[in-house]
């Protein structure tokens, strides 16, 4: 797995995720990266990667909306000027 630090360089994070606990995709997977968003500007996140942790918090066992809320709050908080993602290319979740 890889730790990716995404600076908040744009007003949006700019990723779409699918998956979460109790779905076919138990950990959130990146399905889109929007051009011009912070994630795209960072250049290190890729479509297909699985998000294991956000700012050190595990997404394991979290349902989709809970995982999405955690990521949204990590981007919104003014406590940090970046969001740390622990990602993997592999579907390790089960």
């Amino acid at each position: 797995s890889t730790l990716v630090r995404v600076p908040k360089s744009a007003s949006t994070l700019g990723i779409a995720i699918e998956g979460g606990a109790n779905t076919r995709q138990p950990l959130p997977r990146i399905v889109t990266i929007q051009r011009g968003g912070s994630a795209h500007n960072c250049g290190q996140l890729k479509v297909g990667q699985i998000i294991l942790e956000v700012n050190g918090v595990s997404l394991r066992g979290r349902e989709h909306r809970d995982a999405a809320r955690l990521i949204a709050e990590a981007f919104k908080t003014k406590e940090r000027d970046h969001v740390d993602f622990l990602v993997t290319e592999f579907n390790v979740a089960l």
Binding site: T12, G14, A16, G20, T23, H64, L94
Partner: peptide, 16 residues
């Protein structure tokens, strides 16, 4: 295991 996985629902997609 495979059968169980097939019964799980697909996920919604959220843009962040």
């Amino acid at each position: 295991v495979r059968e169980k996985r097939l019964t799980l629902p697909p996920s919604e997609i959220t843009m962040l």
